[in-house]
Measured scan of single mutants.
Amino acid sequence: MQFKLIINGKTLKGEITIEAVDAAEAEKFFKQYANDNGIDGEWTYDDATKTFTVTE
């Protein structure tokens, strides 16, 4: 399945899409990606669109 991350950071904005087995695997990848890029904010997930959003 495809999952999307929308980044609304103070210094980094954009979107990335990955293939993952389930939402838990996608969330783990996205949170590591955000951590690696210094993004720390509020997370939301929309199951209907398979979209995670992080907002700083």
Rank of each mutant, 00 (worst) to 15 (best):
Y33L: 02
Y33V: 06
Y33H: 10
I39P: 02
T11P: 08
Q32Y: 11
D36T: 05
Q2M: 15
N37I: 14
G9W: 11
I7P: 01
L12K: 14
E42Y: 15
F30M: 08
Y45T: 02
K28Y: 09
T44S: 08
G9E: 11
E25W: 12
K28I: 07
T53C: 03
I16W: 04
N8S: 14
M1P: 06
I7E: 01
Q32I: 11
Y33A: 06
Y45D: 00
A34L: 07
K31N: 10
A24N: 12
E56Y: 13
Q2N: 15
E19T: 06
A48Y: 05
T44Y: 12
L12H: 11
A20Q: 06
Q32P: 02
F52Y: 15
D47G: 07
F52P: 00
I6S: 07
T17N: 07
K4M: 04
V21S: 12
K4Y: 15
E19M: 14
D36P: 01
N8V: 06
G38D: 05
K10W: 03
V21D: 09
E56C: 05
K13V: 05
F30T: 01
A20T: 14
K50D: 08
T53A: 11
D22L: 04
N35Q: 13
N37S: 05
V54M: 13
A24M: 08
M1I: 09
A20V: 12
T17K: 15
F29L: 07
N35F: 13
A26Q: 00
N35M: 13
W43R: 01
T53D: 02
F3A: 01
E15H: 09
K28T: 06
G41R: 01
V21W: 07
T51W: 05
G9K: 13
Y33E: 02
T55F: 14
K4H: 06
N37M: 14
L5Q: 00
A48C: 06
A26I: 01
V54H: 01
N37G: 10
Y45Q: 02
F52N: 00
K4Q: 05
N8Q: 10
E27T: 14
A34V: 06
T55C: 09
A20S: 11
L12C: 05
G38H: 10
K31F: 07
I6W: 04
F29N: 05
K31R: 05
T55A: 15
D47K: 09
G14L: 04
T53R: 13
V54G: 00
L12S: 15
G9L: 04
K28P: 03
G14V: 09
F3Q: 00
I18K: 13
E19F: 15
K13C: 03
E15K: 07
D36W: 09
E56I: 11
F3W: 14
I7S: 03
A20N: 08
V54A: 08
T49I: 10
K31S: 09
D36K: 12
W43K: 00
W43Q: 01
F3N: 00
Q2Y: 04
A23D: 13
I16T: 11
G41Y: 03
E25D: 14
A26H: 00
K31D: 02
E25M: 08
A24D: 14
F52W: 12
G38I: 13
G14I: 10
T44F: 05
L12I: 11
K4F: 09
E15D: 15
A20F: 07
F30W: 02
E27H: 09
G9C: 02
F30P: 00
F52D: 00
K10G: 06
A48D: 06
K13Q: 04
A26N: 00
E42N: 02
K50A: 06
L12W: 07
G41E: 01
A24C: 03
D22Y: 12
K10C: 03
E25Q: 15
A24W: 14
W43G: 00
Y45P: 00
K4P: 00
T17S: 15
F29Y: 05
E42S: 10
N37P: 01
N37H: 08
M1G: 11
I39K: 02
K10E: 04
E19C: 06
F29K: 15
I18V: 06
T51H: 12
K10M: 03
T44V: 13
I6T: 11
A34S: 10
G9H: 03
T51A: 11
K13H: 12
A23R: 12
T51R: 11
V21I: 14
K10I: 08
Q2W: 15
E15I: 11
E25F: 04
A26F: 00
N35H: 09
I16P: 01
Y45S: 01
G14F: 12
F30V: 10
L5H: 00
F52G: 00
N35C: 04
D40K: 09
T49V: 15
I39G: 01
E27P: 00
A26R: 00
D46W: 08
A23Q: 13
T17V: 13
T53L: 07
K13M: 15
